[in-house]
């Protein structure tokens, strides 16, 4: 989201006093720029072209949708309003991610839960595995200088492969 806003802002600045700012100030607004349209189109998916965001989709239908966004923008609609308009017309699938309500909560909840569960199991396993201490081995290795210790370890690792 932030990224898109930033890009939108940046392009407005770059375009200088062209359409972007003119829209805000001019009582007789010109057409919104392609970048303004794309900033919104990027977040939408048409129901026909699977997994291709609207801003890069080459089909005729998608071109018409982009023109529709331009039209709405020139009528003074906000980004949220335009997105809502498409959701009302075509359903939630036009959004890049499912809105977090109803069953859709699952899409956001299941992966973190699964990962937490995995982490918990790993933690339990570690606790079960970890023996109190190996003081002998520890003190032995700390007697050697770090360099010797490294050479010894390297040798061992290279040997059993």
């Amino acid at each position: 989201m932030k990224k898109f806003l930033l890009i939108g802002l940046l392009t407005c600045l770059l375009a200088g006093l062209s359409t972007g700012l003119a829209l805000a100030q001019d009582p007789q607004p010109g057409l919104p720029s392609d970048d303004q349209v794309n900033a919104i189109a990027k977040q939408l998916y048409c129901p026909v072209c699977e997994n291709i965001p609207l801003d890069v989709c080459g089909t005729q239908a998608c071109a018409q949708w982009r023109e529709l966004i331009r039209e709405k923008l020139s009528q003074g609609w906000s980004e949220a309003q335009i997105k809502q308009y498409f959701v009302d017309q075509y359903g939630d699938r036009v959004l890049a991610t499912p809105p977090a309500r109803g069953l859709n909560w699952l899409v956001y909840v299941v992966p973190p839960l699964a990962i937490l569960l995995g982490a918990f199991m790993l933690y339990r396993a570690f606790r079960a595995w970890k023996q109190p201490a190996l003081p002998l081995a520890e003190s032995n290795s700390s007697l050697q200088s770090p360099a010797d210790e490294y050479v010894r370890r390297l040798e061992e690792e290279l040997r059993n492969r």
């Binding site: 890049a96 991610t97 499912p98 899409v107």
Partner: peptide, 23 residues
Amino acid sequence: WGVIFPLISELVTGQKVTVGPPF
């Protein structure tokens, strides 16, 4: 989960959703 979820959603609610890059 991201690949499978649209199918589950369609099966349960009848409505398709897109799970896209932001997710």
